[in-house]
Design a protein around this nucleic acid. Structure first.
Length: 424
RNA sequence: GGAGUGGUGUCCGAGCGGUUUAAGGAGGCGGUCUUGAAAACCGUUGUACCGAAAGGUACCGGGGGUUCGAAUCCCCCCUACUCCGCCA
């Protein structure tokens, strides 16, 4: 969330930002509730101060009449305080809800626009793969090579789930280990995280688990959600923590399953691995000083480019437009790999890296002590190292050969133990 | 899951209804002394919020309750440890 003081001092900029991001946050409500909150706190603190004075006075030796007068005043204060506390608590709940809806400010250079088609292509590596034959999509390849089984998963779990089989399993393990090795060499500390997290952590990261459009699965009878990304568990890892400056930056890479409800996402792209309810992902996460976050955002993007370049997959980089940023992000880069089987050949998002500045740190209370000994919020960034499902789409579709077999990217061969998946 | 014992400031640790505005110690910082250091002594030492400031309010695992007044009493929850049960 944004700092309330910042909101008050920059109302016009915050209002313009909300509009550019096409969010329906009620800025005026936030300001009004913030004022109400301040007034309620002042009233409450006055009464509490008086209560403390009365309690202090009771310690002295007193006549019966004096004593009774103080007790009566104390009783009256008790009621008044209870009422004020109730009012304050109501206002704070409303304020918190309204405040949480206000998105982070956007980077001045982020393209202004509403939807993903307004994203700006800034770089292209490789060119769309050409074939001397009619290429198949990954669903066909996966079935023919016995790597993917959607039909059984539909019976056992429901649509948009899948089984990986045979070399498909090894390919997933190879991808995660490849990414982990590459990141560990760059100083990232590896984690295997829980696949669930408490609602409060989800909200701190900027997810809204409640509501019909929510992409989050919630557990019945428990205050727990299935995570949609290890960003949640890695960002929650240091919630409440105050770092000393020399502990930063902190670079983590976390392996987890990711769960997404994708409610209402059925339709022409519903088939296959591209949009599924569960996948495995290695996620990068950085905690750093505010002045360094721009630089580390570039580093995350460069790592994502390195991973996809080294896998020999054609991709482009887009600068995500304001309307497509999501509430916590200040700026976001997406990598889109070429997917020959998608709609007859199309770019499809395979990674995403966001600089969330202090938006998540403020709610999760992650700080550092600055040179003056004052506590300041850290900046938090995240980025996909490898999202297995989509990486597998790209590999199967780009590396397929005329006989229906699929070569493995050379970089993965040591991790797979095979260099080709041959037709049955 | 059952039984028992705990959770106090940066750390250790007292306090179990009103001289606690949280004792005492350790550590940190500043100072005195010293050629320098150690020792000794003196001072200081958290977080958030309200406020222009002075200052105030809250925080003793979390939440509720009792009371004029709660770290202290009551209830619920979380958590750690020990023992038992179950289990990959």
């Amino acid at each position: 969330m944004l700092d309330l003081k910042f909101i008050r001092d920059n109302i016009d900029a915050v209002r313009a930002n909300i509009a550019e991001r096409y969010m329906d946050a009620d800025l005026d409500l936030v300001v009004r509730l913030a004022d109400e909150r301040t007034a309620a706190i002042k009233a409450l603190e006055d009464q509490r101060r008086r209560r403390n004075e009365v309690a202090q006075a009771m310690k002295a030796k007193l006549g019966d009449a004096e004593r009774q007068a103080l007790i009566d005043e104390g009783k009256a204060l008790k009621d008044a305080i209870a009422g004020l506390e109730a009012r304050l608590s109501e206002v704070e709940i409303e304020l918190k809800a309204a405040h949480a809806r206000i998105p982070n400010m956007a980077h001045p250079d982020a393209p202004r626009g509403k939807e993903d088609k307004d994203n700006l292509e800034v770089k292209r590596v490789g060119e769309p793969t050409r074939f001397s034959f009619e290429p198949k999509d990954h669903v066909t390849l996966g079935a023919e090579l016995d790597l993917l089984d959607f039909d059984t998963a539909t019976r056992v779990t429901g649509t948009k789930f899948y089984y990986l089989k045979n070399q498909g399993v090894i390919l997933e393990l190879a991808l995660t280990r490849y990414a982990l090795d590459l990141l560990m060499a760059k100083g990232f500390m590896p984690f295997s995280t829980p696949d669930l997290a408490k609602t409060e952590i989800l909200e701190g990261i900027g997810f809204n688990p409640r509501g019909a459009e929510s992409n989050v699965y919630q557990l019945a009878d428990e205050d727990l959600c299935l995570i949609g990304t290890a960003e949640i568990t890695l960002g929650g890892y240091y919630s409440g923590r105050t770092f000393s400056k020399d502990e930063l930056p902190l670079k983590l890479v976390g392996l987890s399953h990711c769960f997404r409800r994708e409610a209402g996402a059925s339709g022409q792209f519903s088939k296959g691995l591209y949009r599924v309810h569960q996948f495995t992902k290695a996620e990068m996460f950085i905690y750093c000083l505010p002045e360094d976050s721009g630089r580390y955002h570039e580093e995350l993007r460069a790592i994502e480019e390195e991973i996809f370049s080294s896998l020999g997959l054609p991709f482009r980089v887009v600068d995500t437009c304001t309307g497509d940023l999501g509430a916590p992000a200040y700026r976001k880069w997406d990598l889109e790999a070429w997917m020959p089987g998608r709609n007859g050949g199309e770019w499809g998002e395979v990674t995403s890296t966001s600089n969330c500045t202090d938006y998540q740190a403020r709610r999760l209370n992650v700080k550092y002590k600055d040179d003056d000994g004052k506590n300041q919020y850290v900046h938090m960034l995240n980025g996909t190292a490898i999202a297995c499902s989509r990486a597998i789409v790209a590999i199967l579709e780009n590396y397929q050969e005329a006989d229906g077999g699929v070569r493995m990217p050379p970089a993965l061969v040591p991790y797979c133990g095979f260099d080709r998946i041959n037709p049955k």
